[in-house]
C-alpha cells in the first residue's frame, strides 16, 4: 500500500505537472530539485500541455502483480511538445496501430490497483488525439 506516494505525486500524475527553472527557463518533467542546466535551486511548478509524439514503444505481456489485470498493454516514451520526454502507457490503441512519431495527447486513466482492497492509482497515459471539429 504506497498511499503516501499516490498522494504525493497526484498533481504530477493527474496534471502532468513538472517544473521550470526561474533562472534559465529550462522545463522539467518529472520535477527536479536543482536545474540541471544552470544549477539554480529556484524552480516553479509548470503544467505541460499533454501534447506530444511517440519516441518509442513496446507491449508488456508479463507485468508486476498490480498491473496484471491490464496486460497486454503498450508502454512508450513520449516527446512532449514543450521538450521533456516522458515514460507512460498508451491507451485507446491496439499494438498494430502504434508508430514512432505519431501524435498523442495526455489523458488520465487507471494506472494500477493495489489489489481488490487497496488504493486505485490514476495518472497520465497518452492516446491518439480526438480531433476538434471546425
Amino acid at each position: 500500500m504506497d498511499i503516501p506516494r499516490t498522494w504525493r505525486l497526484r498533481d504530477q500524475r493527474y496534471l502532468l505537472q513538472g517544473n521550470q527553472c526561474e533562472e534559465c527557463g529550462e522545463l522539467y518533467f518529472p520535477k527536479v530539485f536543482i536545474c540541471h542546466k544552470c544549477r539554480c535551486r529556484s524552480l516553479k511548478d509548470y503544467q505541460f500541455s499533454g501534447r506530444g509524439t511517440v519516441y518509442s514503444y513496446s507491449t508488456v505481456y508479463q507485468a508486476a502483480p498490480n498491473f496484471d489485470a491490464f496486460v497486454p498493454y503498450i508502454v512508450a516514451l513520449i516527446d512532449l511538445k514543450e521538450g521533456p520526454r516522458v515514460t507512460a502507457q498508451l491507451s485507446d490503441i491496439s499494438p498494430g496501430e502504434v508508430e514512432i512519431g505519431m501524435p498523442v495527447e495526455m489523458v488520465v486513466r487507471k494506472i494500477s490497483e493495489d489489489g481488490e482492497r487497496g488504493v486505485i492509482n490514476y495518472g497520465y497515459k497518452f492516446r491518439p488525439p480526438i480531433p476538434l471539429e471546425e
Partner: peptide, 13 residues
C-alpha cells in the same frame, strides 16, 4: 469502458 477506465477517469475527461 477500456480496462483502464472507470467513472473517475471518464468524469475527468
Amino acid at each position: 469502458p477500456g480496462a483502464d477506465e472507470d467513472t473517475i477517469t471518464m468524469s475527468i475527461e
